[in-house]
Design a binder for these strands. Structure first.
Length: 606
RNA sequence: GCGCCUGUAGCUCAGGGGAUAGAGCAGUGGACUUCUAAUCCACUGGCCGGGGGUUCGAAUCCUCCCAGGCGCACCA
């Protein structure tokens, strides 16, 4: 077990330039459904209610909440705060309010009733359904989007693997979460810029050069570059335990690299190129793109300026020959910017990168989708940027995520104890292919369905849980396509497509009369859930948590499955049939739009 | 030692001041002559880590403790 833990340590160190992750001090705001139709409903109800309860209308709107059960209506006003003011029980207050509203209705709500300490409002279901479905049909692919970002630029630093190390399962979190945030923020009207901050600089290259010069073999490098480099890296650390001089030699080679010594630079270029080619295969498979591959080396020319700036501003001091920033006043340990041998560090490069990003892109936010274990690093970075007088320092936000860890004994790969992301993806796709072969042998394009399902499963597994929590890697769980998985959502989508195909309903147009037919419980619940979509995207964006959207899509699919089992769509009654076709078409739209924001493909057949 | 994160059903997790704490998996029992059963329905399963506090009301906020994880000057 100790051995395993050790391996885990190696692994996470390995995978980690930016690979694990969190946003400290982050408040998870409860988002109001800005731009969603719920606003109109709250607006109307709060306008009626405000004078009766002697509160500001906006305050009333804030207090309105959704009841836990559908029988309790659609929006509820809790009467507790009035109770203490009026010195009456909340139950009595609710009853009196209901009394004064009895027989009244609005455009959107049709009645108000007291239930215990709550005043519950019931929407007019026809108006509600018309409103919402009309909107979904009108907006189509844009349903759910908003323009809250107003074109502001958000720079998102994600994936960021370490050159010379294979793309392990540990890298998936930053890659997939970062990409989802990119898409989600884009849907909120931000201009997103994705940066892959490759770990292509640092003393590790000194180590690689030493290892390759000692033990390297051109032929093996050619055959399987990244794995071979990784083996050399592992070997370096093993040998360095008994021969500490290796470490010193590595530092020397990195120094040479920083000074531009040609042999060192040639090695570096070779290693970088080979690694990049490997990563790009995986990005292609995942459908992930970056606007810039600006690795750490990209900022080399700016490092002198950073050092000069911190010295001029008097924030840095010499200590034992190294250049550090004392952050004790701020409750943080000292941060080192230059080692005694003159070489710079990760933090130095990040300070340069932050300034570069601000100067180049003029961002409103710069997100760092990086493991939680680097929280301190980003606290130091932001504090130093503040000390340097940059007002935008507070817009640099660490989006942390938990580690992927392994059950003991689960992993016994011979070399290095690595699980390669590529292997995970391929296995998942293979399993999807087998299941499709078994369940739907007549399917035309099995390969693309298998890819959508296999890749979606892995992605969703990562996105559906709160990112701050550690994830235990478990093959059985990764390869389980039942229950709360992407497949569940994709399957609902495919079923809808199938019904629409059978009905020959390719071009559907919404008409308000259809709302009269969508009145059973499953339909009402379904429509209400669809109405929540824009608010869920906004909440995901605001708290940088794709899991909110992922969980919501499970709910949509679940509501659909319940509807599907109790309400047949292809019935004889032409009006009911048409109404249900319109409804499921709207569901399809939401599922498709939502999955797209998570980077998951929704096949029409599977 | 100091700091941060996590602790909810057997397992994996939602819920982050309000109405009886919810899903999935696992278990048991049902539902395919009917739109794909990768689905659905029912049942079983909880001192929400523990103690104190704030509040009309706490899984949720504060505080202390316990357990696990992650950090804490020449790695990234």
């Amino acid at each position: 077990m100790a051995g395993l833990l050790q391996k885990q340590g190696d692994f996470s160190d390995f995978g980690n330039v930016r690979c694990h992750l969190t946003a400290f001090g982050l408040k998870y705001y409860q988002i109001r459904n800005e731009g969603s139709n719920m606003d109109q409903y709250k607006e109307e109800i709060s306008r009626v209610l405000a004078p009766l309860v002697s509160l500001e209308q906006s305050r009333v709107a804030e207090l309105l909440e959704e009841p836990p059960e559908p029988e309790m209506g659609d929006l509820a006003f809790p009467c507790y705060i009035l109770a203490s003011r009026r010195k009456q029980s909340p139950v009595k207050v609710a009853a009196e309010l209901a009394q004064s509203l009895s027989g009244k209705r609005g455009v959107y709500w049709e009645k108000a009733m007291a239930q215990g300490p709550y005043l519950n409002f019931y929407f007019d279901p026809v108006v509600f359904n018309q409103d919402l479905l009309r909107r979904i049909f009108a907006e189509g692919e844009d349903y759910g989007k908003s323009n809250r970002g107003r074109g502001g630029t958000v720079v998102i630093d994600y994936s960021s693997p370490n050159i010379c190390k294979p793309f392990g399962i540990g890298h998936i979190r930053s890659t997939v979460i970062g990409h989802a945030l990119y898409l989600i923020l884009e849907a909120q009207g931000y201009r997103c810029i994705g940066v892959n901050h490759l770990g292509d600089w640092g003393t590790q290259f000194g180590k690689m050069i030493v290892a390759y010069r000692r033990w390297g073999d051109d032929q093996q490098l050619k055959e399987d570059p990244v794995n071979y480099l990784y083996r050399l890296y592992v070997r370096f650390h093993r040998e360095a335990e008994s021969e500490p001089a290796l470490e010193e030699e590595a530092r020397l080679w990195f120094k040479r690299l920083e000074e531009g010594q040609p042999e060192a630079v040639d090695y570096w270029k070779l290693f970088r190129q080979l690694s990049l080619e490997n990563y790009e295969q995986i990005y292609d498979l995942l459908g992930i793109k970056f606007d810039y591959y600006h690795g750490e080396s990209h900022y080399n020319d700016l490092l002198d300026d950073v050092i000069r700036l911190v010295q001029e501003k008097g924030v840095a001091t010499e200590s034992d020959g190294a250049l550090i920033v004392d952050l004790e006043k701020y409750g943080l340990p000292p941060a080192m910017l230059r080692k005694k041998d003159g070489a710079t560090l990760y933090l130095t490069r990040d300070l340069a990168a932050a300034q570069y990003r601000y100067n180049t892109f003029n961002f409103v936010k710069a997100l760092y989708v990086v493991g939680a274990e680097q929280k301190l690093h980003f606290q130091q970075m932001v504090k130093i940027l503040e000390l340097l007088g940059f007002p935008w320092a507070r817009d640099c936000i660490h989006i942390p995520f938990g580690l992927i860890r392994f059950k003991e004994g689960r992993m016994s790969t011979r070399e290095g104890n690595m699980i390669l992301l590529e292997e995970v993806l391929q296995r998942s796709i293979r399993l999807a292919r087998e299941i499709i072969e078994e369940k739907n042998p007549g399917l035309k394009d099995k390969e693309s369905a298998a890819r959508a399902v296999g890749l979606g499963a892995v992605r969703f597994g990562d996105l559906s849980n709160d990112r701050v929590k550690d994830i235990e890697f478990d093959w059985d769980k990764v390869l389980d396509f039942t229950g709360e998985t992407a497949v569940y959502i994709q399957y609902a989508h495919a079923r809808i497509c199938s019904i629409l195909r059978r009905a020959g309903a390719t071009e559907l147009t919404w008409h308000d009369d259809a709302a009269d037919f969508l009145t059973c419980e499953e339909e009402k619940k379904m429509i209400k859930t669809l109405a929540a979509f824009p608010g869920k995207i906004a909440a995901s964006a605001e708290s940088y948590r794709p899991s909110i959207l992922a969980r919501y899509l499970i709910e949509v699919a679940r509501d659909f499955n319940r509807f599907y089992h109790s309400c047949p769509v292809l019935v004889d009654d032409p009006e009911l049939r048409q109404a249900r076709l319109l409804l499921i078409s709207a569901v399809r739209q939401v599922l498709k739009n939502g999955l797209a924001l998570l980077g998951i493909v929704a096949p029409e057949e599977m």
